[in-house]
């Protein structure tokens, strides 16, 4: 199986994601350049974190127009696995592969810290190694992670069980206080209706090695690997 990590101008978690897939999980991994038109036979696309195009217009707003993203759109339509982390999640929202939009964090500050996440849906390609209610400890690092969708969209999201990860306490309660950035329904990770495109604000690649203080992020990558094999 083959992973592709997309590099947009301004991506800055591209090497981190590549490192974890390649050196920690020993998977064949390629970098994919935003100007390319070819996904080179990969089985899972990862859109990494960063500040694509400086995020000067809106987070992820310009990256969605890159040639490669048109390939990613078709890849997703064919059922290919797409994981968007942080800025990657924002790109997926702008691209319309996931519903909703991101607002600035409720305290109007960039937030870099470990958070607790409750797995709400463990039957996805990205969380199948977990169990519902399981709590993960994974860091976030973003300015615009305050998830918003209009009420009718939220109804759909809930009806289809699209909320995969939620900000929670260490015991799994989705309280207001645990909702660090103010997201609706404490949404930290969201999947599309077809169940093959996941966007998540927390960085699993930053929590995949013991030396970095948590290995809970491994669950996301292990789930993908087990799903694909």
């Amino acid at each position: 199986m083959k992973f592709g990590v997309v590099i947009f101008p301004g991506s800055n978690c591209d090497y981190d994601t590549y490192w974890v897939l390649k050196e920690v999980f020993h998977q064949e991994t390629l970098f994919l350049w935003h100007k390319d038109h070819d996904l080179r036979g990969i089985d899972c696309v990862v859109l990494p974190g960063g500040f694509s195009y400086g995020d000067y217009l809106r987070s992820g707003a310009i990256a969605r127009f890159s040639p490669l993203m048109q390939e990613v759109r078709e890849f997703a339509a064919r059922g290919g696995l797409v994981l968007g982390i942080c800025n990657g999640f924002q790109v997926l929202l702008e691209l319309g592969l996931l519903p909703g939009a991101m607002l600035r964090n409720k305290n109007l500050k960039f937030l870099c810290q470990f958070v607790h996440l409750k797995i709400n849906n463990a039957e996805t390609p990205f969380t199948n190694q977990g169990r519902p209610g399981q709590v993960l400890r994974i860091p976030i690092a973003h300015y615009d992670g305050n998830f918003y969708a209009p009420p009718e969209t939220m109804e759909e999201i809930k009806k289809n069980n699209q909320i995969v990860l939620q900000y929670s306490t260490s015991t799994g309660e989705t309280t207001e206080e645990a909702n660090v950035n103010g997201s609706l329904e404490n949404i930290a990770g969201l999947i599309n209706q077809q169940g093959n495109v996941l966007g998540m604000m927390p960085h699993p690649e930053r929590a995949s090695e013991a030396v970095l203080g948590s290995q809970d992020g491994r669950l996301i990558f292990q789930s993908i690997i087990s799903w694909l094999s």
Binding site: N12, C13, Y15, D16, W19, V20, E23, G49, K109, F110, L111, C112, Q113, P139, A141, H203, E205, R206, E209, V211, L212, G213
Partner: peptide, 27 residues
């Protein structure tokens, strides 16, 4: 102050801010 800074990107930061010194692994 520190949580406004991304102190983890590049995944080398072993000791988060607040220790006597910052510690970064050499991959």
């Amino acid at each position: 102050v520190f949580r406004q800074y991304d102190h983890m990107v590049q995944i080398n930061t072993v000791f988060l801010p607040g220790a006597d010194a910052a510690v970064l692994r050499i991959k």
